[in-house]
């Protein structure tokens, strides 16, 4: 049987273009209890920082119309513990593992990359777009110049493929994307969550302790699609589309505007089996449309 969904990302073959987004699949263990995660194209693992981080205090989730806001704040075990405790198990599973790395300072990123250089991984997703940490995080990802510099410095020392995750809160998403490409990014993923706010009218206070949080889900999909389209028109490196994807039709839209692969996030929370349903939907779609490979529709818009 031919696999019509087989795609390639940065020279790495994937079973299909469906990746679970960072922060929506932890390190794969819980979902593997529910279904065989090796059926996925890949997993972008829970965002790491150099040192362990306990995340934000206070409420962390708020539902919005067709979406949700989160203020998890990069709770994670740190790079070293990840390499010791999570990676050996993950490497037994035949799917692409993408290691997501964030940081509070340039030094954090550099040291994190150095630790990961010797680890048995293939691709790093550089998170310069998390709106939920007070310092660093998204601040690197707003401005093309600072993002370009950071990516350039990391590229010099990083042994693995480098995917940069972009923020929709950037001043100019196209300039940002071009700066990352010019400084050696192998791939781009977008969009991270949209900075947003909720108010508790009874307490007369912001709902989140951090005041602002990240909005995701179908509510942001049209914005994500527009940004992925714009970026794909302006860079040559592969782009991974993210933002409110919850059906196979959504995936087809992202591929048509130029995405090489996609990530599913919030929809995993609504139903952990979403990704599998989407993969099945894409297979039937290719068959119906008589596509030998899903790539045939890539970038046709």
């Amino acid at each position: 049987m031919i696999n019509r969904l087989k795609v390639e990302l940065c020279g790495i073959e994937m079973k299909n273009p469906v990746i679970l987004a960072s922060g929506t699949c932890n390190f794969g263990k819980e979902l593997n209890e529910k279904f065989d995660i090796s059926k996925l194209g890949g997993l972008s693992l829970k965002g790491l920082t150099l040192n362990a981080h306990c995340g934000n205090s206070g409420e962390r989730v708020f539902e919005t119309a067709s979406g949700m806001m989160n203020s998890v704040g990069m709770e994670n075990p740190g790079v070293k513990k990840f390499i010791e405790k999570e990676l050996p198990r993950l490497n037994q599973i035949d799917t692409l593992k993408i290691v997501n790395l964030g940081g509070h300072s340039k030094d954090d990123y550099i040291q994190g990359i150095e630790l990961l250089n010797d680890a048995d991984i293939r691709i790093i997703e550089l998170n310069i777009s998390c709106p939920n940490v007070k310092s660093g995080g998204m601040s690197f990802g707003i401005d093309a110049k600072s993002a370009g510099e950071l990516v350039g410095d990391i590229r010099k020392i990083c042994k693995h493929k480098l995917m940069v995750k972009l923020s929709p809160n950037a001043k100019d998403i196209v300039e940002l994307a071009k700066a990352c490409e010019a400084n050696g990014a192998d791939s781009l993923s977008l969009i991270n969550t949209v900075q947003a706010m909720a108010v508790d009218i009874r307490k007369k206070k912001p709902f989140f302790e951090n005041v602002y949080a990240g909005l995701s889900g179908p509510a942001v999909k049209p914005i994500a699609l527009r940004m992925v389209h714009q970026v794909c028109q302006n860079v040559k490196i592969p782009v991974v589309g993210i933002g409110g994807i919850s059906s196979w039709e959504d995936v087809v839209e992202f591929i048509m505007v130029g995405a090489s692969a996609i990530q599913i996030g919030t929809a995993n929370f609504a139903n952990p089996h979403t990704a599998i349903k989407i993969i099945e939907g894409l297979e039937s779609y290719c068959e119906r449309e008589k596509l030998k490979n899903i790539n045939e529709i890539k970038g046709i818009i």
Partner: peptide, 20 residues
């Protein structure tokens, strides 16, 4: 408050004496 119920989102993470 929870988003996923399956332990993947960490939205309901709570600080207990032996950690989150």
């Amino acid at each position: 408050r929870m988003a996923c119920g399956t332990g993947i989102c960490l939205c309901c993470s709570t600080k207990l004496k032996e950690g989150n």
